[in-house]
Deep mutational scan, measured.
Amino acid sequence: DDWEIHFNNITIRLHGVSEEQIEELKELIKNGAHEEELRKWAEEVNR
């Protein structure tokens, strides 16, 4: 699925990401992940 997530003036566009991966991302954000951590997560997902 395609997703677009907005938070802290950042837009993250995701393509072909599962519901499970979105839940992981929500947890990262909820736990106060920094932009660098989110980038690493996105790189892993996009492999």
Rank of each mutant, 00 (worst) to 15 (best):
E20Q: 14
E4D: 08
I10V: 09
E19K: 13
W3L: 08
V17Y: 04
E24P: 01
L38W: 02
V17R: 01
Q21V: 11
E23V: 09
E24L: 08
D2T: 15
F7D: 01
N8I: 13
H6A: 08
A42Y: 14
L28K: 04
E27F: 13
A33H: 03
S18D: 05
R47Q: 15
L28N: 00
I5H: 08
G32H: 09
I10Y: 04
E36F: 06
G32W: 01
D2N: 11
K40M: 09
E24G: 05
H6I: 12
R13A: 11
I10F: 06
N46E: 14
E20S: 14
G32D: 03
E36C: 09
H34I: 10
L38S: 00
G16L: 10
A42Q: 07
A33T: 05
K30H: 06
E20D: 07
E44L: 03
F7W: 10
N46I: 14
A42S: 06
G32R: 02
S18W: 02
E4C: 07
G16T: 11
Q21E: 06
E4I: 14
E35I: 14
L28D: 00
E23T: 11
G16K: 14
E43L: 04
F7P: 01
V45W: 10
I29P: 00
T11G: 08
R13I: 14
L25V: 04
G16S: 12
H15P: 07
A42C: 12
E27L: 13
H34F: 04
L14E: 01
I29K: 01
E24D: 06
I5P: 03
L38E: 00
I22R: 06
G32L: 01
N46G: 03
K30L: 09
K40N: 07
I29T: 01
E24M: 09
W3T: 05
I10Q: 07
L25K: 00
E44W: 03
R13M: 13
I22F: 09
S18G: 05
N46F: 15
V17W: 08
E44C: 01
E27H: 08
F7C: 14
S18I: 02
W41N: 00
R39Y: 08
K40V: 07
W41Y: 04
E20T: 10
K30D: 04
K26S: 06
V17G: 03
E37T: 08
Q21W: 06
I29W: 03
E43W: 04
H6T: 14
I10D: 07
L25T: 00
E36R: 06
L28M: 08
R47G: 15
E20G: 11
G32I: 01
H15N: 09
L28S: 00
D1E: 13
H34E: 13
R39D: 03
G32Q: 05
T11K: 06
E24C: 02
I5K: 04
F7V: 14
L38T: 00
I22D: 00
W3C: 14
T11D: 06
A33K: 02
N9R: 06
W41A: 02
E4W: 11
E43S: 03
L28R: 02
A33W: 03
E27P: 00
E43M: 03
E35K: 05
E35V: 12
H34Q: 14
A42K: 04
K26E: 06
D1W: 14
N31P: 00
K30R: 13
W3Y: 15
R13H: 14
I10H: 08
E44R: 06
R39I: 15
V17T: 02
K40W: 05
K40D: 04
L38C: 01
N9S: 11
K26I: 11
E20V: 08
K30T: 05
A42F: 15
E37P: 01
W41L: 01
E44S: 05
A33D: 01
V45N: 05
R13Y: 10
E4R: 06
K26D: 03
D2M: 14
F7R: 01
K40C: 05
E27V: 09
E19D: 10
I5G: 02
I5R: 04
R47M: 15
E35A: 08
R39A: 11
L14R: 00
L25C: 02
D2I: 15
R13K: 14
E23H: 11
E43A: 07
E23D: 12
N8K: 11
H6D: 06
H6E: 09
L38R: 00
E36N: 09
A33Y: 05
W3P: 03
L38H: 00
N9P: 02
S18A: 06
E24Y: 08
G16Y: 12
I22A: 08
K40A: 12
F7K: 01
L38V: 13
E44D: 11
I5C: 13
E23M: 12
D2Y: 15
R39E: 07
K26L: 14
G16N: 14
H6Q: 10
F7Y: 11
E37K: 04
Q21I: 14
D1Y: 15
H6G: 04
N46Y: 11
E37M: 08
S18H: 07
W3M: 11
S18Y: 05
R39S: 05
E4G: 04
